[in-house]
Each structure stands twice: as structure tokens, then as C-alpha cells.
Computed example of a mutant assay.
Amino acid sequence: MTGYESFINQIPNAIMNRVERHLFSNIALFKPRTYIAGKMFHSEDFHVILPSAPPPDTYINGKLHSFTNRRVVVFNPGDTILSTGEGAKKEYISLLIKKDAIQRIARDMGFSSDIRFLRLENPYSGEFMQAIGAFCREVEREERFPLMLDCMAVQIMTLLLREFSTNLNSIPEEASNSDNAIARSLDYIRTYFNSNISIQDICNEINMSPYHFIRSFKQKYGLTPYQYLIELRINKAKDILACGQHSVSETAILCGFVSVSHFSSTFKRKTGVSPLEYKKA
């Protein structure tokens, strides 16, 4: 018994037989090739989805939700999920993380309450995706080391708790110290510059209204948050292109641009040359 049977048994055999899966004591990795429409699912554990493209519209706990791109989706234990995507063939990574395991990690971090993630969709850092990638590569090895996989699972759970909003870090902080809030916003932008972050995402983290945040940020740094984000992405792109190890399209993705054309036009506007010209220089 793996402890994941109650979830696996909800998936039709014809689909599950084609799903690559790796089951471990605290975490299970699935690589489906399609979303299942018209069937309600629920899990007793945390269910994390890393989509390669926006998932189809889905009812979560009875409420219809439309997803955006490049966000990690986190379902809490007991959430009901009903996809409307009729056989949407989109590969993605699905993780089941044992509730007890993530609770133990939370206690080690100094928390005592039961964990619940507050946001369905979450921006992610490069560090988080690197941890997921390393875990995926390790499970595909012919000779796997259980201790290595356990350590990687702990890293993934720790990053989930550290990066994504939970009921443990949602207590509003006093916003009287505006400089401190703006400094934290800068840390947030630097961490998630390669993700599809919004002004509202940042404001949720620092407990400040969008109007006050944008005004305070510009007063302190002379740029709007969006202007700062673009400058940061362009500077990161310069570093990547100078190394010569990534293509222009790969650089665009690594730096958080929604398309290669947007990246190329923005890069040329800021630097006077195209990304390809900069790479060849």
C-alpha cells in the first residue's frame, strides 16, 4: 500500500495505464498527458500541478475558475476538482504531497497550526522549478537512491511553504513602516521576476493597496514597479545572452517574457540592438 490509492482509484484505468508515475513515502509524481473532463476528484493530501500551458476551466469546490499561464496550482486536502476541458491534451506534472509530511516540515519551521495554502495559483521562483526538475531527473534514473529522493522531497515541501502564501504567514503586518514594505516588494520582484507576477500579487505580499504601493515605489526608486521589473528582466537577459548557452527564445522564457516578440522588441528598445545581435557581439 502506498497511501495514494484513494486518489489513483478515482482515475479511469484506461487513462491511468498511460500515466507515468513514481510513488514514494511522502510525495508522488505523475506525468499525465491529458486532463480528465466531467469527473470530480478530491485528495486527502496536497495536490500540486505544474502546467505547461493554462489548464482548462475547472470547478473548484463548486466555483468555476479560469487559469492563467505559468503559475503553480495548489489544491488543499479535501478540495473538489471538476475539469470542463473535454479531453484537453496538455502534458503537465502533478504532485501529491502527504499532508502529514508537510505538517512535519511546518513544525520544523516553527509553526504549529494545520497548513492551508491561500492561493489557488502561485508565482514561482527559479529555485522552486530547479528543485522540481532535479527531482524529476532523479526519479528517472535506473539506479535511484531513496535518501536522495527523500532530501529532494523535503526541499520541495520547504520551498512550497516558504514561497507560497499559507494561513501561517497571512497575518497582516503593520503597514506603518512603508519603507519596510517597499523593501520587501523589491525582494519579491527580484525573486519572481521570471514569473507572471502582477501588481496585486506584490500588494498581497506586503499588505498595501495598489495605489499606495505604486506611488510609494516610484517615490523611492524613481521608477514604477513595472518599469523596474522590465529593467531587471533586461539586465538578466543580458547576462544570459552574454554566456552564449541559451537561445533567444530560451532567454525570453527564463526572464519572464510572455513571448519572444515582446522580449525582442523590449530588448531592442532598451539597448538599441536585438537580442541576437547582442548575443553575437
Rank of each mutant, 00 (worst) to 15 (best):
82 L>H: 15
161 L>K: 03
226 Y>P: 03
240 I>D: 05
264 S>Y: 05
261 S>F: 06
246 H>A: 04
205 E>Q: 08
27 I>Y: 10
223 L>G: 05
5 E>N: 09
171 I>G: 02
116 R>M: 04
115 I>A: 13
265 S>N: 13
278 Y>G: 10
211 Y>W: 14
204 N>D: 15
130 Q>F: 08
164 F>C: 10
229 L>P: 06
161 L>D: 06
140 E>T: 01
25 S>F: 12
33 R>E: 12
138 E>G: 00
3 G>L: 03
121 E>S: 14
175 A>C: 11
280 K>A: 05
91 E>W: 08
94 S>D: 15
8 I>T: 03
26 N>H: 15
13 N>S: 15
11 I>A: 06
74 V>A: 07
140 E>K: 11
24 F>M: 07
247 S>P: 02
195 S>P: 09
241 L>E: 07
263 F>S: 00
119 R>M: 05
268 K>M: 12
181 A>L: 03
44 E>N: 10
19 V>H: 01
226 Y>G: 14
276 L>Q: 08
207 N>E: 14
150 D>C: 04
45 D>M: 05
2 T>K: 08
175 A>S: 13
64 L>C: 13
107 R>N: 14
11 I>F: 00
264 S>D: 11
186 L>M: 12
178 S>K: 03
109 M>T: 13
171 I>S: 09
18 R>W: 02
250 E>I: 05
232 L>K: 09
43 S>T: 10
